[in-house]
Structures are given as structure tokens and as C-alpha cells.
Nucleic acid binder design. Structure first.
Lengths: 134, 134
DNA sequence: TATCAAAATAAGAATGATTATCAAATAGAA
DNA sequence: TTCTATTTGATAATCATTCTTATTTTGATA
């Protein structure tokens, strides 16, 4: 009626995911949202992430230590998963090949292509070294 | 003492995984093993799969509907995941690019490269059609 | 073969991520 | 406002995976 119309939780969740480059899990997203949506429920986060995914407006890009990680876009690009700290980052420098043309040859319909590299990120590599950078 | 020496469960698990091309889950592997190892425990399957993975002699190639799927080798190759039936198949026809050389440029250590296509397999495509093949 | 320590296992409890349930709150149209 | 459909919060339920512990098996050695 008078005050600024409150955004739906749904909008806040999508905005928060899109604002992040960390490919958060549902739980992490829930924690990030607490600041602006203190009364949000974890179930709502899960529920809406599932909805967005079914609508094709977000994607899940990896499962790290049994936890699903999300990306606010569906633009195809390569990801790097650090097996040390669990971080997931975009590798925009690496071109993702397009295999959609193979569908007919393979007898199937290809909807998505996901290329994921994994290993140790720069930080985790550094922490492994005997002598840290002097 | 006298009878043929019984194989360890561990060996049976690895052999069963290697004999399969279906990229089974731990649970599916457990069910497949029941014939020859009726008294095997599901925990043993999980335990040994984790061991094999840490030894680098098997790999987990996908998570389908929240369930981890395994491959008896670590030879890099492309996989196709059907979002209809959950089947995971090798795509040996599709060459998997090698990005290990990017490590230095990216400042990280790349251990594995995983390329996964997903969509609908031939069977699930067929079942979608209004009129099945006459 | 008997004995012993280390490794492997079965059974089931515990954990933790995700999903389902349902009553209450909210949005949007009339 | 009033009505109805949608969305949500709280929490219970589910399900994959891991942990625990007592027991069994292995392999070495005497």
C-alpha cells in the first residue's frame, strides 16, 4: 500500500545467486541471504533453486563433497573445481567445445555440455609448498 | 584349506565394476554383486569404492539424481548422461580435449578433465514420440 | 598346524543434504 | 475488501553416504 513493495524471496534468491561468482551451494546461498532476508527458510532456497533449474534459467555445475553447486546462468563455460578447498571457479579463458552437432550421429539429443577441470587452485598449491613465498 | 580360495570382497567389487559398462552406483554395484557375494555389505562397497578412488584406479564420472556413478578406469573419455532414464554411457567416438597444459597459465594444478554431455538417449527419445516405431 | 597382530568385513547406527508436508502468510484479481 | 491460488516457514521424512564396533579373515611366523 505505502511502503516499498517487498521483493519475493524468490527474486532475492535468484539475484543473490547471480551476484555471486562463487557457485554457491543451497546452504551457502541461504547464509548469504540472511543479511537481507533474515526470515528466509532453507527449504525456500532449495525449492526455488529446483524451480529455476527446471525453468532452465540457472544450472548446477558441480557436486563438491556431496553438495550441489549452482551457477546463475546457463551460458556454457568451463569450470575448475579445487579438490583442496572446494572452490568452483569459471574458466572463461578456456573455450568450451560445442558437441551439439554430434547428436544425430550419436542417436541422442544433447541438451547441455559440461566441461570441468579439477585439481588444486593457486592458493591450495601455495599452502602445500614447504617454504611459503618469502 | 582345501576348497578354492575365496576371493576377497574387495577384488570382487573391482572386478564387477570393471566388467560393467553402465557406470553403476554403489547401490547398483551392491545389487549386482549379490549373486556371487550373497553376504556382502553395502558399507563394504562404499568403503572399497572410496579406497579405489583414493588410489586412483577408478573414477567417479557423474552424479545423477544425487547419486554418484563410477567408472572402472581412469582413462579420460567423454560421457553422456541421459536425463530421462539416468543412464551413463561412454562416448568413445568423441575426443576429449586435453587441458593439462593450461595449468601454468591458470595458476593451478589440473589433475582431471571431465567432459559430460547430457540430454535424452535414443530410447528415451523414442518413448517421447507420439507414435512409436511401426 | 597353532598363534598372533593387522587388515577387512557385516550390521546397523549416525550423519548430512535434499525433499515432502502442511498450515499460515501473501499476492493478485474481481 | 474478499476470494483463491501461490508462496513460504517450520519441521518431519527420506535417502545416499559415512562411521562405529564387534567379529572374521588374512598373512606371517614359530
Amino acid at each position: 500500500m505505502e511502503s516499498a513493495k517487498q521483493f519475493r524471496k524468490r527474486n532475492a534468491i535468484l539475484a543473490c545467486l547471480r551476484a555471486s561468482k562463487a557457485h554457491p551451494s543451497a546452504e551457502t546461498l541461504y547464509q548469504m541471504l540472511q543479511k537481507e532476508q533474515p526470515d528466509i527458510s532453507l527449504a525456500t532456497v532449495y525449492r526455488n533453486l529446483a524451480l529455476f533449474k527446471s525453468q532452465g534459467i540457472i544450472s548446477s555445475v558441480a557436486t563438491v563433497n556431496g553438495v550441489e553447486r549452482f551457477d546463475g546462468t546457463t551460458e556454457p563455460h568451463v569450470h575448475f573445481v579445487c579438490t583442496g578447498c572446494g572452490a568452483v571457479q569459471d574458466l572463461l579463458q578456456v573455450e568450451q567445445p560445442d558437441y551439439s552437432g554430434f547428436a544425430q550421429r550419436l542417436g541422442c539429443r544433447i541438451d547441455t555440455t559440461q566441461l570441468t577441470l579439477s585439481g588444486l587452485c593457486r592458493d591450495c598449491l601455495g599452502n602445500t609448498r614447504k617454504s611459503p613465498k618469502s
